[in-house]
Design a binder for these strands. Structure first.
Lengths: 135, 135
DNA sequence: GTTCATACTTACCTTTTTGTACGTACTTAC
DNA sequence: GTAAGTACGTACAAAAAGGTAAGTATGAAC
């Protein structure tokens, strides 16, 4: 359409054909981060170590099952560290690994942008003239 | 646990209790951006205006239904602009609004981080010792 | 005149994700 | 002795998301 588009056709491909293509492992990671609770857990842990129940109370709406599952996925990805103290009642602490902290900061930027610009967005939704069937 | 955590308990709440609480509209927006195709479409459109079929070819794996649905949601949010030329065969162009471009850049940062750090992540997955039941 | 391309919509079905309710094991508080 | 708190696992159910295949309208190429 325009020559700008034409000229970086190759560089586009080089720089980031990856996520666009199915099969790429980054799509999987992105899913872990962008599913219902993944991102929220990461951002919550940016504020420091939390126990399981602390997180549950903080993320209003998570079920125990989902929180456990989310934490396990993030742990398996190497983003979250789990430390369990063998006492009764159980005491388990979750924190970010250095890798996880970097990721979490990116997620936080995105979430922050949305929160900060929420008024603009809500306004744009009004004036877009396009109806959202659901929600 | 630590006093750092204690001391910003209040400021945490002030600054970003929002997404953590259910009910907040930002959660909805976040969903539009983080579902299977939302983020990818935004990032793709950062490279310029695209026609429907261009996007379809670019995002390997999207069905027409999903692409149409995703675009409509993003349009309703005011992130994407749709311009249709009444010719035959149909010709429709999609591009980012200024608001959408800002968002898309944030998403791109996140996606880029994942792509760039994929080797580190894959490595961390190996050494995490935690198995992922699915995938 | 049959096929192709465009940008969709619709009905229907499958997969994935999320939730609910319960169980466990142990201890402290009432 | 009954309830509550802790950090989960598990079976089952519900909901949401996604996919498939077809249809629509129109004209252009073969």
């Amino acid at each position: 359409m325009n020559n700008i588009n034409q000229s970086n056709k190759l560089s586009e491909q080089m720089m980031r054909g990856e996520v666009f293509s199915d099969q790429c492992p980054s799509r999987e990671i992105l899913k872990h981060v962008t599913n219902r609770w993944g991102g929220l857990v990461l951002v919550a842990l940016l504020l420091g170590t939390h126990r399981f129940s602390d997180l549950r109370r903080k993320l209003s709406g998570v079920s125990e099952k989902m929180l456990a599952q989310t934490l396990q996925t993030l742990e398996a990805d190497g983003f979250v560290m789990r430390v369990s103290y063998p006492v009764v009642p159980p005491h388990v602490e979750y924190s970010l690994t250095p890798l996880g902290a970097e990721l979490a900061k990116q997620v936080e930027l995105l979430v922050d942008w949305i929160e900060i610009n929420l008024p603009r967005i809500l306004d744009a939704q009004q004036t877009s003239g396009v109806a959202n069937r659901d929600e």
